[in-house]
Simulated scan of single mutants.
Amino acid sequence: MKLTKLLTGAAVALGLAAGGALAQDKTKVGFVYVGPVGDGGWTYEHDQARKAVVEEFGDKVETVYVENVAEGPDAERVITQMALQGADLIFTTSFGYMDPTINVAKKFPDVKFEHATGYKRAENVSTYSARFYEGRAVQGTIAGHMTESNIVGYIGSYPIPEVIRGINSAYIHAKKVNPDVEFKIVWAFTWFDPAKEADAAKVLIEQGADVILQHTDSTAPQAAAQAAGNVVTFGQASDMAEYAPFPRVSSIIDDWAPYYIARTKAVMDGTWTSVDTWDGIGPGMVGIGEITDAVPAEVKAEALALKEAMASGEYHPFTGPLKKQDGSDFLAEGEIADDGTLAGMNFYVEGIEGSIPE
C-alpha cells in the first residue's frame, strides 16, 4: 500500500515536472498596443502580425496583448506587468512607448524588447520601423493628379519626424505632378480618436480639400469623406478596403508579420541581438494597397512605376534639388537625403505653408 502510494506520488511528481518543462519551453511574446485591435489601421495590422506568429509557431508560443495603452506612465506599468508575468519578448508598438520601454528593459535584462518607430536602443532593446514616406510618395503622386480644387488636406497625429517626413514626401510628389497644389495640415494630437479624426477631416473639407491623407489610425476620416461626397482618401497603415473603390482609392499597408516571426524565432533559438531595422517597399514592410479604378489608368501606371523604382532602389523620394520651407538649401541636384537627416526631420520643405507645432 505504502509502495503504491510512493509510486503514485513519484508519477505525479514526474508528470508535474514534465508539465513544467513543457510550459517553460513555450516562448511567451507580449504586445502593447496604443489603440484597439479593431481600429482598422495601425493596431489592427500589428495584431494581424501577432496572429501570424501564432500561426507560424503554434503551441511553441504563447502571445498576450494589451490594447488602448496610453503613452507615458501607464505604458510603463503595462510593460512591467508583462515582464513580471514571464514574457520572453515584448513588442511595444508606438513612438511614445520609447522611454517606458527603455526604463523597463533596465529592470529586466533577460527579457528582449522590440520598440516600434523609436530611436533609443539597449543591449536588450531593438528598434524597428517602416519607410512609410515611400508610400506617401505614391499617395502624393495620385493626390496631385486627382485634386480638382488643388487643395490636399493632411491629418497629422503628432509633429514627430516620422509624421513630418510623410507630409514632406507626399507634398514633394504631389507638387511634381501638379505645380498648383496646396497642402492644408490639421494636427489631431492623437493616434486614435475617431471623433477628433472625423472633425479634422470635416475642417479640411470645409477649407476646400477634395483629397485627404491621414497619419492617424481610425477609419473615421474615410467615413467623413464618404459622407461629403467627392473627396478622395487613402487607407492608413491598413487597407481600409471597406471604403474602396471610392473614396479610398489606395492605401499604405504595414506588414509586420515577417519581422515579428523572425524576431520571435531569434529569441527561440538564442540568436536575438539588438538591431535597428528600417525597411520599406523593397523588403515588403510597406505595401501599397490596390489602386482602384476610380484613379485614371495613366495615373495608376505612373504611381505603380514610382513604387517599382523605389522598391528596386532606383529612386529615393528625397532626391534634390530641394529646399527647406525657409528657402535655405536642403539637397543639391541629385543629392539623396541620408537616413540620419530623415530620422531627425523637423522642418517642412519649401512650399508647405504653416508652422510645425512645438
Rank of each mutant, 00 (worst) to 15 (best):
K2R: 13
K2T: 14
V12E: 15
G19D: 09
L22R: 10
D25Q: 15
D25F: 10
Y33P: 00
V34F: 03
V34L: 06
G40E: 04
G40N: 11
A52F: 04
V54I: 13
E55M: 10
D59A: 12
V64C: 09
E67I: 03
N68C: 09
N68Y: 05
V69P: 01
A70L: 08
E71K: 01
G72W: 06
G72L: 06
P73N: 05
L84R: 14
Q85R: 14
G86E: 08
A87D: 14
D88S: 14
L89Y: 03
L89S: 04
I90G: 00
T93M: 07
G96T: 02
M98N: 07
P100K: 00
I102G: 02
I102P: 00
V104Y: 00
A105V: 00
A105C: 06
F108S: 05
D110K: 15
E114Q: 13
T117S: 12
Y119K: 12
R121G: 03
N124H: 09
V125L: 07
T127M: 11
A130P: 04
Y133M: 03
V138A: 01
Q139I: 09
Q139G: 08
Q139F: 06
T141K: 00
I142S: 04
I142K: 02
M146I: 08
T147E: 06
Y154Q: 12
P161C: 05
V163F: 04
Y171L: 05
I172D: 06
I172N: 04
K175C: 02
P179D: 06
E182G: 05
F183I: 05
K184H: 13
V186E: 04
V186P: 00
W187Q: 02
F192K: 02
A195G: 07
D199V: 08
D199S: 11
A200D: 10
K202G: 09
I205E: 01
Q207L: 13
Q207W: 12
Q207V: 11
I212Y: 04
L213V: 11
L213A: 09
S218Q: 08
T219Y: 14
T219P: 13
P221S: 14
Q226V: 07
G229I: 04
N230E: 15
V231T: 14
Q236Y: 09
Q236F: 10
Q236V: 11
M240L: 13
A241D: 11
Y243L: 13
Y243V: 13
Y243R: 06
F246K: 15
R248A: 15
D254L: 12
W256Q: 02
W256R: 01
P258D: 02
P258S: 04
Y260F: 10
I261V: 10
I261E: 00
A262G: 09
S274T: 08
V275K: 14
G282L: 04
G284R: 07
G284F: 03
G287I: 05
E290A: 15
I291Y: 03
D293H: 07
A294Y: 15
P296N: 12
E298T: 14
E302N: 06
L304D: 08
A305P: 03
L306D: 02
M310K: 15
Y315P: 15
G320R: 01
L322F: 02
K323G: 07
K323P: 05
K324C: 02
S328P: 05
E333A: 10
G334Y: 10
E335V: 01
I336Y: 05
A337P: 00
A343E: 03
E353A: 15
S355E: 15
I356S: 03
